[in-house]
């Protein structure tokens, strides 16, 4: 997917808005993820056994929540990485390359994450 780098104000503002929106969504999703994974489990460190992980991820509503979490956290991470890397100072050409690389990395991350949780859910 090609991404056009937009140095105009609208493009920059859109980037900020998406970072803020995904950030707000992550407040809820990270809280659910952390509590469900680590604070309702009685084993030390709040870590689940193999069987517990499979049963957990195979629950349909949990699968959907974890899937949404994966997409939102990846979008937020890629936008954040972009912002950090732009601090290094880049030409327009390099900025366009960076945008494409981050979109590709984000897609690979989301696809791998879905394959992972899909395989685990199928084993339950």
């Amino acid at each position: 997917m090609a991404v056009r780098s937009r140095p105009d104000g609208a493009g920059r503002s859109r980037s900020w808005r998406w970072t803020a929106l995904t950030g707000v969504a992550l407040l809820l999703l990270v809280t659910i993820h952390m509590v469900a994974h680590h604070f309702v489990v009685e084993e030390i460190g709040g870590l689940r056994t193999y069987r517990q992980v499979l049963d957990y991820i195979a629950t349909p509503v949990i699968f959907v929540i974890e899937g949404v979490f994966l997409v939102v956290v990846t979008v937020h991470a890629m936008l954040g990485l972009r912002s950090v890397l732009l601090d290094l100072g880049m030409s327009d050409r390099r900025r366009r390359l960076l945008d494409r690389a981050l979109v590709a990395l984000g897609i690979v991350t989301v696809v791998y994450g879905f394959v992972l949780i899909g395989v685990l859910a199928s084993r339950a």
């Binding site: 920059r12 954040g80 972009r82 912002s83 601090d87 100072g89």
Partner: peptide, 16 residues
Amino acid sequence: RGRRGEGPISRKAPGP
């Protein structure tokens, strides 16, 4: 100013 600047978060300085 950072909202109007490049990237989602305010740029403080030229580099890390």
